[in-house]
Write a protein that binds this DNA or RNA. Sequence first.
DNA 1: GTTGAGCGTT
Length: 245
Amino acid sequence: MSHFGRAGPPDIRDTYSLLVLNITFRTTADDLFPLFDKYGKVVDVFIPRDRRTGDSRGFAFVRYKYADEAQKAVDKLDGRVVDGREIMVQFAKYGPDAERIHKGRIVELVEKLKGRSRSRSPRPSSRYRDDHRDRDYRRRDCSRSQDRYDERYRGRDRDRYRSRSRSRSPDYRRERRRGRYDDDKGRSPSPNRSVSPPSRGSASPRKSVSPRRSPSRSRILVARDEKERSTTPKSVSPRGRSDSQ
DNA sequence: GTTGAGCGTT
């Protein structure tokens, strides 16, 4: 995939993962490798891609062999403009249990880095991160009731990227694509619901009828049902009629 | 062709 010929996680035992955010969707691992390799030994560069679309999610993981090199890369590449966009480089945590992971490197790494960071520089990109979080908090403040459900859902759901896609980003395309996919799946095993697809197709005229007029709607439905049966006595074929209209 | 908060593949 996005690896250098290897499958699966190479070796997180003695590697330090860096999270690169705010990268362009066109940026690939090959583009980030030379950039990060200049500041240290990069063992692997991985860019998570969407399972469905296969496009980059806009962030990447760069694994360094040594923490000092990783820190240097963070200090140098964090805030650097790549492909016309300012990237954010920070140490990555391997999942919610990252800190629980054999405290081998990550924890020790964080401790050492925090100490060095304080002595050297208070995170050049701290303002960016704060800005993002601030905006996020403002959004959450607008909808606290849903926030509880959101947090609870995310807490119980182990699928991070999925919940992130549904709760965080509007993602019209993803939602729409996924919705269609589910709709197709739901329609296939339910031939008796063939009346639904036509209804969806004629959603506009149906809304014009308004549900307030129950008898009218009933008659229309009956009339349409009769016409449908008269038109297609055997196979219903919702798509066929959709094409006809 | 598009988008933009975030934490990853066997």
